[in-house]
Amino acid sequence: MLLRLFCVLSGLMLSVPLLAAPDDFNEAKRLAQRIYADESETFYCACPLRWQGSKGIPDLISCGYKVRKNGPRASRVEWEHVVPAHHFGKSLSCWQQGGRDQCQQSDQRFRLMEADLFNLKPAIGEINGDRANFAFAELPSQAPQYGACPFKVDFQRQLAEPRAEVRGDIARIYFYMADKYKLNLSKAQQQLFISWHQQDPVDDRELLLNRRIAQQMGHPNYFVTGTRTWSLDYQPTGYGLSAQLEPQHQAKVKSPELTQQTAHNSVAEQRNQDNQLQVLGNQNSKIYHLSTCPGFSQVSSKNQRWFSTEQQALAAGFRKAKNCD
């Protein structure tokens, strides 16, 4: 019986390449570009987005975006920390000694938080810069500043308002980061994010991205999967504060009632879902593979391009591998 269980678990683990969470922000950006390679719009403004290698280029004209001040940054996509680095770094001694640069050089815990893929989104560079480390809020009296882009910034009060379509995504990212790293959220912030979570529920795209990132990070965002629910009396677990946590130990925090074996099976089930949905293209050969195809694990990282569906791959000019039936 034990031998059979070992074989089943081994088969599940081998069905999808075992990947590793990034060690720093630079590595995280490279991985994020692969995860979001089929992303068609920027996060805050919903401007059409195309990729040239690792560079994201927003179509500002078609979405009615107007540059507020910084044209060069507006013309490119940057990886935005939804929960700003200042939020999770300011209490660390390295930050007090030399700010973000010092933390990047000397604090492994900060580097892991800064590289957490669940907290990264592709945003227009000017929006990323203007948002800075401002808290999110609703700003009904603030006039639009970026043309048709619905993002608003109150520079005097250091607040920012995102579009309604991503407010739930933002809330669930904040819940995830606060839970994993024991970050403080004020009562007002929690109330706002609980409201956003309810108004903008999880959709199919968020679920797909969650599965992709979970394969890399070793665990999902439990507030996206619904395994955990934030409330005003929620007590963050801090399960990400130890860099030595094994994936199965991270999975155990899904629910206090889960046993270690149940948690392990849950991770295996998550990998199976990834396996069914993944479509990986080879930029060089213009051939795509399903995760059940022999060539899926043979595509080099520099040539990888991910798609949500086979239809997207075909529309992008890729053809299915002949040995993938």
Rank of each mutant, 00 (worst) to 15 (best):
Y239A: 01
V67S: 00
Q312R: 13
G125E: 10
S54N: 13
Q142R: 06
Q96W: 15
D233Y: 00
R111S: 04
C45D: 09
A32D: 08
K152W: 02
A315E: 05
P22H: 01
Y234D: 06
Q96T: 05
A46D: 10
R305W: 15
L5F: 09
C293Y: 11
Q216H: 08
A160L: 00
P201R: 13
N184K: 10
G129Q: 13
A164C: 10
S300R: 10
Q215F: 10
Y239L: 02
S255M: 10
E41C: 01
S308R: 14
P162G: 06
K320S: 11
W306M: 01
L31T: 02
V279Y: 07
L3T: 06
P58F: 04
C7H: 07
D116E: 13
K322I: 15
I61L: 13
A135N: 08
L3I: 08
F134M: 11
Q97E: 09
L139G: 04
C324L: 11
A20V: 15
N265A: 14
F155Y: 12
L290E: 11
A316G: 13
M177Q: 02
A85F: 05
N265C: 11
S300K: 07
L92Q: 10
M13E: 15
L290K: 09
S255E: 15
Q216E: 14
T262M: 09
C103W: 08
C324H: 06
H264N: 07
L185K: 03
L208Y: 15
R319N: 12
E165F: 00
R73W: 08
A20H: 15
R131C: 08
N210V: 08
L159C: 07
